[in-house]
């Protein structure tokens, strides 16, 4: 399984990536939405993208809309991981095409619960399958 971790904070990228790697994910970081689109355009299409909302250059919501606009990227599950936590913001992100939403602060267990809901929790013992 592959995951793209999009956040302008290096600390947050490192935290999210290390949680996902603990579950057997291969991860790649991106500092904002544009950088993340570059990774997709290069052909590295992940199973999951964890997306911060407020970022320079291109924010998370714009990234979600861009991914949803391209049928080739339909397989990517989009999970917002952000401190934006008003009811209306979550509605907006879901309407733009995000599948799930994790509010910062979160624990590793919260990420695990969401991956289980999304059917994206790799079986503990299964080795990573090269795509």
């Amino acid at each position: 399984m592959r995951a793209l971790v999009i956040d302008d904070s290096r600390a947050m990228r490192r935290i999210v990536a290390s949680i996902l790697e603990g579950f057997g994910y291969e991860t790649r970081p991106a500092g904002h939405g544009r950088e993340a689109l570059d990774v997709l355009e290069e052909g590295w299409v992940p199973d999951l993208a964890c997306i911060d909302w407020n970022m320079p250059v291109m924010d998370g919501l714009q990234f979600v809309s861009a991914v949803r606009a391209n049928p080739a990227w339909r397989q990517v599950t989009l999970m917002m991981v952000t401190t934006e936590s008003e009811h209306g913001q979550i509605v907006k992100a879901l309407a733009a095409g995000a599948h799930e939403y994790v509010i910062k602060p979160f624990t590793a267990d919260a990420i695990a619960d969401k991956l289980s809901l999304l059917g994206l929790m790799p079986a503990a013992s299964s080795p990573g399958v090269p795509a």
Partner: peptide
Amino acid sequence: RELANILGGNVKS
């Protein structure tokens, strides 16, 4: 910065 961001987002809500 990230701690301020998370505190800020939660205060905003």
